[in-house]
Design a protein around this nucleic acid. Structure first.
Ligand SMILES: [Mn+2]
Ligand SMILES: [Mn+2]
Ligand SMILES: [Zn+2]
Ligand SMILES: [Zn+2]
Lengths: 140, 140
DNA sequence: AAAAACTTGCAACTTTGTTGCAATAACCAT
DNA sequence: ATGGTTATTGCAACAAAGTTGCAAGTTTTT
């Protein structure tokens, strides 16, 4: 697992610094859950906030994590699938956002049917957010 | 048109103050375009920023405008359809976000096919964002 | 016209995120 | 292993977006 993390950093051309190993470990452990900068701040001891922001940006640029749009207003990130690279992300899945516990998770949904847009518009990508109650919050 | 605005405020149980008339007029004129707080600030002379935020919140609560999730990070709002009320919004349409000019517009898309979610999850609503280039930005 | 109820504008504050820069750490090639 | 090169860190300072408390001002109702 430690090896897993080192490999990932290597593969994505990121220097192996303490904070990067720590942050990446948290993402791996989160298992499909999207995390905010604050989530990570709380999980770690005392990370420098600015360094954390830059770590997240580097991870995203290098194809290690992807942003999870969830309509909550703050940025959240989750681990990418194996085949994301610095050149292209492959995270075209929907995200579920629980309005009670505020958790956001990546969904393994299949391809979506295309949507009609006005003549002349070019669609590059799309985000689908499902909002509601997660299992835990729905069945208390 | 002035009457239209007065009617709308009346119907949604909002007091007719200067800023509310002004802001609502801007939304009516925007015609399906979603506006940020900053957009409105710029359109108006010198609105108090805080009052504007509260105006937007009241409008949303009373079913006059709805939030347009567009993945841009800042909140945008657009005029609701006639049948939105304080009790329930009816704005289940997708939004298109142009990454070049940053405009966001409401799309008149039909109903979307349902998406599979894990057992036990409850979906209350969903947001669909299409990102790309609008007609003007695609054909320069 | 006055009372009641709601709205405004100001100050102060919070949260989230960015930029510049010198000190530091990681990597690469001797 | 040593040292040079290059990327990363941590600090301070800043900025945008949004919230809260409260006294003063408006709108609505009676
Ligand atoms: Mn995801
Ligand atoms: Mn809309
Ligand atoms: Zn939940
Ligand atoms: Zn455009």
């Amino acid at each position: 697992m430690q090896e897993d993390i080192m490999e990932k950093l290597d593969k994505h051309d990121l220097r192996k610094t303490i904070i990067r190993k720590d942050v990446l470990k948290i993402f791996v452990q989160a298992e499909g859950k999207a995390l905010s900068s604050k989530d990570i701040e709380q999980a770690l001891e005392n990370p420098d906030r600015i360094t954390l922001y830059r770590t997240l940006r580097s991870f995203e640029e290098k194809g290690l994590i992807h942003q999870a749009v969830d309509g909550s207003g703050t940025s959240k990130y989750a681990l990418c699938s194996e085949d994301c690279t610095v050149h292209e992300h492959q995270d075209d899945h929907a995200h579920f956002h629980c309005t009670k516990c505020e958790q956001t998770i990546c969904l393994e949904t299949g391809p979506r049917s295309p949507v009609n847009v006005p003549e002349g518009y070019i669609v590059r990508r799309s985000y689908l957010v499902l909002e509601g109650l997660c299992r835990r919050c729905a069945n208390p």
